Deep mutational scan, measured.
Amino acid sequence: ENVVSAPMPGKVLRVLVRVGDRVRVGQGLLVLEAMKMENEIPSPRDGVVKRILVKEGEIVDTGQPLIELG
């Protein structure tokens, strides 16, 4: 699984990683606000951040690609 998608609609509050960062399974990639709750979106696997597909403040839909892992 190379693309991390939004599990719910919401607003991207914070991106916690940068392109080139090594991440571990379960590590927070970004914080999504949904229904006034902050939800940290975890990495599904170990890898390297290849691309960040959203910006802070952006509104996303369920299933929208957020981050690509390499």
Score class of each variant (00 low, 15 high):
16 L>P: 11
5 S>C: 01
6 A>W: 07
11 K>G: 11
59 I>K: 07
5 S>E: 04
40 E>I: 09
1 E>K: 01
23 V>E: 05
4 V>Y: 03
31 V>C: 00
54 V>D: 00
3 V>G: 02
53 L>E: 15
58 E>N: 13
65 P>Q: 10
3 V>T: 15
2 N>T: 06
7 P>T: 06
60 V>R: 04
2 N>C: 00
45 R>A: 12
23 V>D: 00
31 V>W: 13
3 V>A: 03
37 M>E: 06
25 V>S: 14
15 V>W: 05
25 V>Q: 13
1 E>C: 01
33 E>S: 07
27 Q>H: 05
25 V>T: 04
38 E>M: 03
19 V>L: 15
34 A>E: 14
49 V>Y: 02
38 E>K: 08
46 D>W: 03
61 D>L: 15
20 G>W: 01
13 L>I: 13
24 R>P: 13
54 V>S: 07
30 L>M: 06
50 K>P: 11
6 A>P: 02
3 V>I: 06
19 V>H: 07
14 R>K: 01
17 V>E: 15
65 P>S: 08
66 L>H: 00
60 V>F: 06
39 N>S: 11
25 V>H: 10
50 K>V: 08
15 V>H: 04
33 E>N: 15
43 S>V: 06
26 G>F: 15
27 Q>G: 04
57 G>V: 08
7 P>F: 09
14 R>L: 05
36 K>G: 03
58 E>D: 13
36 K>E: 12
45 R>L: 04
23 V>C: 01
1 E>A: 00
16 L>K: 11
48 V>E: 06
68 E>P: 03
54 V>I: 13
34 A>M: 07
59 I>P: 08
64 Q>S: 10
29 L>W: 03
27 Q>S: 09
17 V>T: 03
54 V>T: 05
44 P>S: 15
36 K>N: 14
63 G>T: 02
60 V>E: 01
68 E>Y: 04
21 D>T: 02
68 E>H: 00
69 L>I: 07
66 L>Q: 04
29 L>M: 06
34 A>D: 12
44 P>C: 00
6 A>T: 14
17 V>A: 13
22 R>F: 10
56 E>P: 02
41 I>N: 03
43 S>D: 02
19 V>Y: 06
61 D>E: 14
47 G>A: 08
20 G>N: 14
63 G>Q: 11
9 P>C: 01
70 G>K: 03
28 G>C: 01
13 L>Y: 08
58 E>A: 14
23 V>T: 10
12 V>L: 06
57 G>K: 05
53 L>G: 15
40 E>N: 06
44 P>A: 12
48 V>Q: 14
2 N>G: 08
36 K>M: 10
3 V>W: 02
44 P>M: 06
64 Q>I: 09
11 K>W: 13
35 M>I: 03
18 R>W: 04
54 V>Y: 06
61 D>P: 14
53 L>F: 10
4 V>M: 11
2 N>V: 14
25 V>P: 04
18 R>C: 00
61 D>R: 05
59 I>N: 04
27 Q>K: 10
67 I>D: 00
46 D>R: 01
12 V>D: 00
6 A>L: 06
50 K>L: 03
6 A>S: 02
28 G>L: 08
26 G>S: 11
8 M>W: 13
13 L>A: 04
1 E>N: 01
60 V>C: 00
38 E>P: 05
65 P>A: 05
43 S>R: 00
5 S>T: 13
53 L>Q: 12
53 L>S: 03
66 L>F: 03
56 E>W: 04
28 G>T: 06
5 S>Y: 05
47 G>I: 12
42 P>Y: 07
7 P>V: 08
66 L>G: 09
15 V>N: 13
32 L>Q: 02
35 M>D: 13
14 R>N: 03
68 E>V: 07
70 G>E: 13
15 V>K: 04
38 E>D: 11
23 V>M: 12
2 N>R: 03
17 V>W: 02
54 V>W: 11
26 G>W: 09
62 T>R: 02
51 R>H: 09
13 L>G: 03
40 E>W: 10
25 V>F: 12
39 N>Q: 08
4 V>R: 00
6 A>R: 02
12 V>S: 12
52 I>C: 00
